[in-house]
Design a protein around this nucleic acid. Structure first.
Lengths: 193, 193
DNA sequence: CGCCGAGTTGAACTGAATCAAGAAACGTGG
DNA sequence: CCACGTTTCTTGATTCAGTTCAACTCGGCG
């Protein structure tokens, strides 16, 4: 029973969004919900959706020998998809898991092609999603190169203060690129958390 | 007087490429050349091209206090662009510099829109470029999280054995995320290079 | 020639990994 | 709702990869 209001506001912030385009877009949207710990996309599958993360947190991880690595985290109010697989139609080599109850507004690959063909706003949305995902990776790459672990943790704190409390320390640590022990010590050192 | 053969072969490898589409695409291509150490894109400008890197090596770097950080390297036979700026039409906050003499096949933003509108293959090309850039970032992100400096250097060696010899050690070190001293020692330790 | 930036090497230091053990939190079944 | 086992988190001790500071070499270029 969720509404598409948040998504509409988000998309409208990119540029003009004719009511007609929006209506067509909405007609192709499907709501998908997942409960905490549920796997959203499993390694070996092809990603068939671009989704707006209406509610919840998603982690993307690869399974390495002994431990797995959380290389990306999707926060609410942004796009979420295994974009490389979505574009190439080839299987993903990583997994996506709901860290909390999650609610998505999704369009399938086929529907998106139709949206591209029939609306101007569709192209804007598609391109903007691509850009958002790309920019996020770019920012993170730079942060991994120039910031130390503590600075990366503090950035997360300032960017998503309400959200990181729902993420188990071990996943945050992996995302930051350090061990759980090290993150535990950072938290102790800097106080509040 | 370069030819577009390499580019054609590259694009044809993505999927079917009708001669008509290719011809239209080529009509919008412009060759751009830069000599070693020349700045290709300066911080504050808007990226107006998506380019195929026909020949040469490009480094992308941010200027930090005292030293700068090479966060990306473009190698020949792949797409090269400041994709975030290209999509958003907003200024870049980093620089692109030719590490060797560089030769590019470029399309402008405006021309690419026309190519999208008038050809099917255009969409394929645009999407594939996006995907290539995204995948590269994804791979690198994972590598920064799970590999140590020596492994990252070895990956570079195996991926671009002929090319890394043209890149000054200090830029490679920055790209890997370590100091020049540390890379110098890694090279000594592992022998060849 | 002498200068200058790039690379090398050494020594001391530091942030984070690893190994290990105990404490807290969490989920499941009774 | 409690008891149990399992997972997650914390804390300590030790080790290690990479930084920093510093001196020296090398090669190109005025």
């Amino acid at each position: 029973m969720a509404s598409t209001e948040k998504l509409k506001k988000y998309i409208a912030s990119f540029g003009p969004l004719p009511e007609r385009d929006w209506a067509f877009f909405v007609s192709r949207l499907q709501e998908r919900t997942f409960s905490k710990k549920e796997i959203i996309l499993r390694s070996g599958k092809v990603e068939d959706h671009v989704s707006f993360l209406e509610k919840g947190i998603i982690r993307y991880f690869v399974e390495e020998e002994e431990k797995d690595i959380t290389f990306d985290i999707g926060f609410e109010n942004g796009f979420a998809t295994a974009y490389d697989s979505f574009l190439t139609r080839r299987p993903v080599w990583y997994n996506a898991e709901a860290l909390t109850d999650v609610s998505l507004w999704s369009v399938t690959y086929a529907d998106l092609q139709e949206i591209y063909a029939k609306t101007d706003a569709g192209n804007l949305i598609g391109r903007r999603a691509a850009e958002e995902l790309y920019i996020k990776k770019n920012k993170r790459q730079l942060s991994l190169l120039k910031d130390n672990a503590e600075q990366r943790y503090l950035s997360l704190l300032t960017d998503y203060p309400q959200l990181i409390q729902f993420i188990p320390l071990k996943y945050l640590a992996s995302y930051i690129g350090i061990t759980p022990q090290a993150l535990s010590r950072i938290r102790k050192r800097i106080g509040g958390g």
